[in-house]
Amino acid sequence: MNTNNNIYTIIYTTVVVILVAAILAFTSMALKPKQEANVKAEAISQMLTAAQFAEKSELEALGNDKILSKYVESIDKALIVNGKGEIVDSLDKAKSQIYTESDLKAQNYLIKKGNADALRLPVFIFNKEGSKVTVIPCYGAGLWGPIWGYLAFNEDLTTFAGAYFDHASETPGLGAKIKDDPAFRAEFVGKTTDLSEDRIFNIVKGGAKEGQTNAIDAITGATMTSKGLDVAINLWLQAYKPYLESGVETIRQKAQAAAALAQQADSLAVSDSTIVAE
């Protein structure tokens, strides 16, 4: 057969292309469930680490199935809110529906555009030892590539329970410390956000001021990555501000109502005793 014949060339290339496409489509379909489980487990273990359920390495050792079941056990609510703080949708808890990095990237773009109505920001509320931990994501640009992570808040929605960060290509030993150094993440625990300030939270180069609770130290030698993280956290906290503020307000009102009820109960008890005294 003349292999340089035109018709032969065309038939040959067509057959090769069809075969290759078939093999690729088959492989992709066969592996997709496992790949999706990997992506879900990764996001969930990041959230669980931020909420201080366990350390990331411990979770990774458990394997995908256990991570997914841990999520289903501990998740209370998985909501989607818009830039005005209104709950517009929810995520499927049973199917462990999460936001992937590209979902976060898309939201980041919308946040920067300033379109509050179009935002679809996820809120994950976990049950942890009797109280609620709220986890929200953040996303931004580091020095070499994107950085992202999860911020976990205690029931008061202002104090950090913990945080977890990840990156695509920050410098190992420097910018990569946002992920690799547990001491950096631990700095967040107990710190607060100040929703009334322009800068809700600060990562300060040279060290946070003594007594300033809405700040932590930047990483020495990783100024650009720290700055990028600071920008990402502030941008996303600003986007979540309406939701967080209404949550804080609800808590305040509940506390007021509870205090009022307690006062009423006290005064009733006093009048009871005065009756008895007379």
């Binding site: 057969m1 340089n4 492989t27 790949q35």
Partner: peptide, 29 residues
């Protein structure tokens, strides 16, 4: 013995790309 000479490089590239994509998909999983 069956590759037409004119498309030799392209066919090689296609074969290599196929292998790499399969390896990448396996790694992702």
């Amino acid at each position: 013995n069956s590759i037409p000479n004119r498309v030799r490089i392209i066919v090689q590239l296609v074969v290599v790309s196929l292998m790499v994509i399969v390896v990448d998909q396996l790694l992702k999983a």
